[in-house]
């Protein structure tokens, strides 16, 4: 099993519902967020192209945050999902330094926090909160090892990219382009 997310940049309108849904579902403290939306403008006038992306932890296959954690608080669970166990985290900041996506932050309570792919919902058969809330249905979550899953089909039929592939972390959030 390999959980992953695919996000259709052609369907995303940048409404930030995914950000709010996550903050509510995961009780993210005010002023913090586990996901965010970026807008990239490519080219120069008049040849311009706009791309909207909902970004978060990439739950990398080659996760530097898990490797550098001195206590094992950062760990990998089923489907390759990267989690942080607050009671093991000493708040040293090594994993924050190690993340090329700056997807982690120091929670006001001291431990490190980030996107969990809403594993607590996924275990109950639900979609992650961001995916469930998306009004344009541009996000797909599922198992890459299952060829009949929506995400497998999307990645088979569409062109896609990942962010900062040159960092070599094998990220698992795919952007359909």
């Amino acid at each position: 099993m390999r959980y992953a997310m695919a996000i259709d940049t052609k369907k995303c309108v940048g409404c930030s519902d995914c950000v709010v849904a996550c903050q509510i579902e995961n009780n993210v403290p005010t002023g913090y967020c586990r996901d965010w939306v970026t807008e990239t403008v490519y080219g120069s006038y008049p040849q311009l192209e706009l791309e909207l992306r909902s970004e978060r932890c990439n739950h990398c296959d080659n996760a530097p945050c898990v490797r550098c954690c001195p206590t094992g608080a950062s760990h990998i669970v089923e489907g390759g999902v990267v989690l942080v166990e607050a009671s093991k985290c000493i708040g040293c900041g090594a994993c924050i330094e190690s993340c090329p996506y700056d997807a982690r932050f120091s929670h006001p309570d001291g431990y490190v926090d980030k996107c969990t792919f809403c594993i607590h919902r996924v275990r109950k058969g639900l979609e992650p909160a961001c995916v469930a809330a998306c009004p344009t249905k541009c996000m797909y979550f599922g198992d890459l090892d299952d060829p009949s899953s929506d995400i497998s089909k999307m990645l088979k039929n569409r062109k896609y990219k990942v962010l900062a592939p040159e960092a070599g972390t094998k990220p698992q959030v795919y952007y359909l382009i």
Binding site: C33, E39, V41, F105, S106
Partner: peptide
């Protein structure tokens, strides 16, 4: 030229 901004707003302390 590429211009990249976070439009959902993000101002996480120390990040």
């Amino acid at each position: 030229m590429n211009e990249e901004i976070i439009i959902s707003g993000r101002d996480i302390p120390h990040i």
